[in-house]
């Protein structure tokens, strides 16, 4: 599913973000990526989103070799991923429905398909009654669930969550991760979640990859339910 082979990334200002990083995530896994600020987590995600390319090494996602991906094919690659952000990134002047529908529109989906699927996904994250609300009328947890619905709408094989609980209270944090956990278990969607919250990581007991100074320092292994 995801493979990093001896990946090096140094930015133009000389910052060495990743050094000889190699890791493999199989299909259907749930992986927490942990590490202090500046450890290289964001660079890892940027490379996965094909916003950055490594200086050397190989990255393969869903059988797509990212180093040879052409600029015009990047959008189509990104449609196979679902992205959840720490700051939710909802469009303030769009309703919950439109925010989720937006991700479908981009792919050229018909209005009919959008009207059919968006309520279904909103129900899945428990927000069907909030479809007509605007983001500022929702709590942080609810906003993040909208973000999750948007990530799910195109049936991605991989969901990348960049500190999804960073702006959510602890109780809602648990709910969000639990929802990701359920999506992983029920749909077999691979989940990659960057987080700082050790309590959550301990509670859910899934695979943990730790990065420090751009290097992989710990990997609990590909076994699901490692701690169980």
């Amino acid at each position: 599913m995801i493979e990093f082979r001896n990946v090096y990334k140094t930015y133009d200002n000389g910052t060495k973000a990743l050094r000889d990083l190699s890791l493999r995530v199989n299909e259907g896994e749930f992986v927490f990526i942990v590490g202090s600020s500046g450890a290289g987590k964001s660079t890892l995600l940027k490379i996965l989103m094909r916003e950055e390319t490594p200086n050397s090494g190989e990255v393969i996602v869903n059988n797509t070799r990212l180093s040879t991906l052409r600029h015009r094919d990047i959008p189509y690659y990104r449609r196979t991923l679902g992205m959840v952000f720490q700051d939710f990134r909802l469009i303030p002047n769009m309703t919950v429905f439109d925010n989720v529908a937006f991700a479908m529109r981009v792919t050229g989906a018909s209005t009919k398909a959008i009207r059919k699927k968006v309520p279904y996904v909103l129900a899945h994250v428990g927000l069907n009654d909030k479809a007509k609300c605007f983001p500022n009328e929702l709590s942080g947890g609810e906003q993040q669930r909208v973000g999750l619905a948007r990530a799910l709408i195109n049936n991605p094989a991989l969901i990348i969550a960049d500190e999804p609980t960073g702006n959510v209270d602890p109780r809602m944090s648990f709910e969000i991760v639990d929802m990701l956990n359920q999506i992983n278990r029920n749909n077999g969607t691979t989940i990659l979640m960057v987080t700082h919250e050790h309590a959550l990581v301990r509670k859910f007991r899934r695979r943990i990859i730790e990065i420090q100074n751009g290097e992989l320092v710990a990997d609990s292994g590909p076994e699901v339910d490692y701690y169980v």
Binding site: R72, Y77, R78, R79, M83, F102, N154
Partner: peptide
């Protein structure tokens, strides 16, 4: 957001 969900240029 458009870019992240795969909007073409």
């Amino acid at each position: 957001i458009m870019k992240s969900v795969g909007a073409t240029d």
